[in-house]
Amino acid sequence: MTDALPSGSSAPTVLRIILGKRLKELRERSGLRLDGAAKALRVNHLTIRRMENAQVGLKVPYVKELLRLYGVSDAEVAEFIGMAERANRPGWWYPFRDALPDWFRAYVSLETDAEVIRVYEPHYVTGLLQTRDYARAVIGAGFPNDDEESLEHRVDLRVRRQELLEREDAPTLWVVLEETALRREVGSPAVMSAQLDRLLEVSELPNVTLRIVPLSAGPHPGTGGHVTYFRFAERELQDIVYTEVGLTSAVYLDQRPDVVTHLEALTRVSLLAAEHVPDPRTYMSNLRKEFDK
């Protein structure tokens, strides 16, 4: 995995990504090249590469044969196979797969399993904090050709994603919003008032930090566009950065120079927001009054 994660209906779970990386490490430790492992299975070397990069499911017979080829003990093989079977199970989002663009499916998987999520959002309130009415208006603008049933299906998915904030093992969520995202009227003044109420409510959660960058703050490193940073409890999996490219694609970065550059930008923008708006709750309360007029 260098500049993108696999997408499509088989968007990988974090466990599958980790097991793929372990397969690669075991192969390299055994001294085998991709073509050598492929020859033992009588498959194309691309099959091995795709398994290691979590681009396909982990076929248990293939995994067993590879682990034995790599000199793994029977006990370790049994443990690995058990994890592979769990990793191959569809994620909770599978029933919503038709509502997810291919390039966004991996995002939902990563979001579900992340320990820390940091978001910079210049245009709208980030999806994890949207009310249902706000989400409907935003999604409707993005998918203008959807019928009512399809639109509600997408909205259901967005609302369902938000359940992770209430989990016992909820991730730490750190969100930086541009002032524009809060002043852009989405839906109606009433929708915006309810959205600001939601932000005031969620900002009281112990695992959520919300910052606001006012227009008066001027240019800053985040103005390139939306960025999400994921960190995981499983230390075998490095940090991942998601950033959108135009209207129909995105990239997932995990190379250290890329991740560090984006993380430093997120930190600078967060500090800038705290300097200019030290009390986001008061700011949002005042803004809410403007929509109530």
Rank of each mutant, 00 (worst) to 15 (best):
R198S: 11
L110C: 01
T228S: 06
H45Q: 14
S203C: 12
L272K: 03
S216R: 00
E234T: 04
G36M: 12
N44P: 09
F230P: 02
A233Y: 14
E148Y: 10
P221W: 12
G71L: 07
V269Q: 04
R86W: 03
A141C: 13
A250N: 01
P278Q: 13
A11P: 00
V186Q: 09
L177T: 05
A137V: 10
E179G: 04
I17V: 12
E244K: 11
D146A: 14
G246D: 05
S193I: 12
G222S: 14
L263S: 15
D113I: 03
D279P: 01
D3C: 06
M1E: 03
A84E: 09
E148C: 08
Y70W: 05
V202L: 15
K59I: 08
Y242I: 00
T126K: 04
G225W: 10
P171V: 11
L205A: 15
N286S: 07
L5K: 00
V251F: 00
L199P: 07
L182S: 09
E234S: 13
R132K: 07
G20R: 02
R22Y: 06
R132Q: 05
S30W: 10
E275L: 03
D98P: 06
E166P: 01
R29Q: 10
L271G: 12
D254P: 07
N286I: 04
E166Q: 13
R16A: 11
E163Q: 14
R105E: 00
F232G: 03
R132L: 02
E236S: 15
A11R: 00
E111V: 01
T248N: 13
G20H: 04
P189I: 13
S73T: 13
A4R: 02
V241Y: 03
K21M: 12
L182M: 14
S193R: 15
K59A: 06
E25M: 10
N207H: 14
E163I: 04
N44L: 09
A84T: 08
L69C: 11
V56I: 11
R183E: 06
I139K: 05
Q255C: 11
D156T: 06
A170P: 02
F96W: 07
H123E: 10
D169A: 14
A87D: 08
W103K: 00
L157S: 02
D35G: 05
R256Y: 14
T261D: 13
Q130E: 11
L34F: 12
N88M: 08
A4W: 00
N88Q: 07
R198P: 03
V186F: 05
L196P: 02
V259W: 15
E185V: 14
Q162A: 14
L287S: 09
R256C: 07
R288M: 11
T112R: 01
T13D: 08
E79S: 11
E166S: 12
E52I: 09
G82Q: 06
R105V: 01
L266H: 06
R281C: 15
V43G: 06
D113L: 07
E236N: 13
I17F: 01
A4T: 02
T243E: 08
E201Q: 10
G224Y: 11
A114F: 07
G91V: 01
R132G: 03
